[in-house]
Simulated assay, not measured.
Amino acid sequence: MTRFVLVAGAWLGAWAWDEVAAELRAAGHEAYPLTLTGLAEKRDVPAGLETHVQDIVDEVERLDLREVVLVGHSYAGVPVGQAAERIGERLGRVVLVDANVPVDGESFLAGWPSDFVREAIAAHDGFWPCPDPAEFAGQGLTDDQVARLVAGATAHPGATLTEPAVLSRPFGELPGTYIKCLLDGEEPWGAAAELLKSERWNLVDLDTGHWPMFSRPRELAGILAASTKGT
């Protein structure tokens, strides 16, 4: 039995993990989906990156979890990676799902053409607005899955995207698995590619798009469960 804390990416809350969490629990694991401050049922609350890191640390400590596997999807890789360092001996493993990798001194927006995100945040009172349905095309999602994703999405607190990560040691020193969703690009790039040079990290491919908790929840849960064999 493994304990998972599941953190979804931009615009999403704990609800995004409903199917994955059900699969993990059915297999005998514990799953704790987490909504970060400013999203879903915690919407409209200002938050910075440190807020989100502390959300994750607080949840692990509140539940008194040991050998916990922290799972970060997309944006959430940045706060999850920092939280993984801070929880120390409580950590079993990190799993990043098609996620951004934290780099000390760099923000989520670093390393890719993201000026349009900064402009959108400035134009929407400090929040990154939810995408329209067309943004999810070509990602292996059914119309119903897109509709569910869009209906549940909430604007994302912009400061969490622009503030720099803070790490005290190379992230690759922690044990981890990187799940690459192939419809979103066949190869890890940037900091993710660098991370996978570490002997403590392994790569798993998943033949779906960037939101596998919707498009392939059973397969994703299986990969998460299998990743614990490396802890």
Rank of each mutant, 00 (worst) to 15 (best):
L167N: 07
K180C: 07
V68C: 05
W128S: 07
G105Q: 09
L141S: 06
A10H: 00
I223D: 00
W112Q: 07
I121R: 03
G38R: 01
A27L: 14
L91F: 09
P113D: 10
F171R: 00
A226C: 01
E61F: 01
L183E: 12
V94A: 04
G140V: 09
W17G: 01
L6M: 10
A31G: 06
P113G: 08
R90L: 02
G230Y: 15
R148Q: 12
D115W: 02
A165T: 06
D207K: 14
E186H: 10
A123W: 06
T142F: 07
P157K: 09
L109K: 10
S215R: 07
L12F: 02
G172R: 10
A226F: 00
G77W: 07
A26Y: 00
Q139I: 00
H124P: 04
V68L: 09
E173T: 13
V101D: 08
G185K: 06
A27T: 04
G185I: 05
I87R: 08
E89V: 08
D115R: 13
D104R: 11
T37E: 09
E106D: 05
F136E: 05
R118F: 03
L96M: 15
A226N: 06
G230T: 14
A153L: 01
D184S: 14
D143I: 03
N100M: 13
V5A: 07
H156V: 04
A226H: 02
P217E: 11
C181P: 03
W17E: 01
L174Q: 10
A155T: 00
P79I: 03
S168T: 15
L34K: 05
H210F: 06
I179Y: 10
T51R: 11
E41I: 02
T142E: 11
S168L: 13
V95L: 04
E19Q: 14
I223R: 11
V69I: 11
A26V: 00
D104P: 11
T37F: 06
P212S: 10
W112R: 08
V94T: 13
E67Y: 05
P129E: 03
E173I: 02
A191L: 07
G176M: 14
V20C: 01
R25C: 10
Y32D: 09
V45E: 13
A22H: 11
C130P: 00
A76D: 04
E85Y: 07
H124D: 12
A27N: 08
S168I: 02
G105H: 10
G48N: 13
R25N: 08
A110N: 12
A226V: 03
E30C: 13
R93D: 05
C181R: 11
L141C: 09
R218P: 03
R43Q: 12
G230A: 15
A16S: 14
Q82G: 09
G28Q: 09
A155W: 02
G28C: 12
A122H: 04
V45K: 12
E219H: 13
W211E: 04
S74F: 03
A120R: 14
D55N: 15
E85D: 11
Y75W: 15
G48V: 03
T154K: 00
D104E: 12
T37D: 11
M213C: 10
D18A: 15
P164W: 08
A76F: 05
F171Y: 12
D143L: 01
Q82T: 04
G105W: 13
E194K: 15
G13M: 02
P129H: 02
W15E: 13
